[in-house]
């Protein structure tokens, strides 16, 4: 009998600990599939963050080195500068990359570090229990914004990916969503391209993935996916934000 579906080689045989409906499981799988398809498992090094995905090293079957909260792109810079012919990717949440690690992100992009960043945006601090994130939407509830995020009191959501477009060293930036099957297919394409940019030595590449967090949003998974697709995309539109790779002429 022909096997038509199997787990990616670059994922370990461990069950995900993520909550039901969490986007991380999908995104992990997409990254692993891309690593398999590009045949780079043996020379890929992952840098997981602090946050829900801190345990990513239990799932990715590649060498991984844990970074302090927010510092993944600085750690990745150190690794890549030593191992220039290897593939280095970070896997970071919104709090990690867009709050505590803003400086490291902007400067890694500006230096054009030849690394790939996977930025998972779920609008909340998942692991610590649903506090306000830099990407929490206006009016959206969190455990530290009674009555919802008030932009006067709490500031507006930060569009880090858009900010990174200004950095001269960023080459490819795309925002995708895993809320729909179509979105997932597009997300995989974008992730693959972001790794290809690194393989071709073009510069910094990042894919921001809108991802549902049913637990902290206090929604059931179906509602959370719908909300990601309908509401999050109003503030964080799904699109290519910067592409100077020259890959696609269309």
């Amino acid at each position: 009998m022909k096997k038509v579906f199997e787990a990616p080689k670059s994922l370990k045989d461990n069950l995900f600990h993520y909550c039901p409906g969490c986007g991380h499981s999908i995104i992990h799988r997409l990254v692993a599939e891309v690593i398999d398809e590009l045949g780079i498992q043996e020379r890929t090094i992952g840098v997981p963050p602090a946050g829900c995905a801190v345990l990513a090293y239990n799932y990715f079957d590649v060498d991984t080195g844990e970074a302090p909260h927010g510092r993944a792109l600085a750690v990745a810079t150190g690794i890549k500068r030593v191992l220039a012919d290897h593939v280095v990717f970070t896997y970071q949440g919104d709090g990690d990359i867009a709050a505590i690690g803003t400086a490291e992100s902007i400067h890694a992009a500006n230096r054009g570090e030849k690394v790939t960043a996977i930025f998972v945006n779920n609008g909340t601090y998942g692991m610590t229990g649903g506090q306000m994130a830099p990407t929490t939407l206006p009016g959206m509830g969190s455990t530290t914004t009674p009555g919802g995020r008030d932009v006067v009191r709490d500031g507006a959501p930060l569009d880090l990916t858009q900010m990174l477009a200004e950095a001269k060293g960023s080459v490819f930036l795309e925002r995708v969503s895993v809320a729909t099957p179509k979105g997932i297919r597009k997300a995989k394409k974008a992730i693959k391209k972001a790794f290809q940019v690194q393989l071709d030595g073009l510069g910094f590449a990042l894919v921001e993935v809108l991802s549902p967090c049913p637990t902290n949003w206090k929604m059931d998974p179906v509602a959370a996916y719908e909300w990601t697709d309908k509401e999050m995309t109003k503030i964080f539109p799904v699109k290519v934000i910067k592409d100077i790779t020259g890959y696609d002429k269309d």
Partner: peptide, 22 residues
């Protein structure tokens, strides 16, 4: 390789990365 980092935080974390890589 010499990198002038954006802060001491970044420099020491680049050190972490390079040390991880041996």
């Amino acid at each position: 390789t010499f990198v002038q980092a954006e802060s001491e935080l970044a420099s020491v974390n680049m050190v972490i990365g390079a040390a991880m890589a041996g």
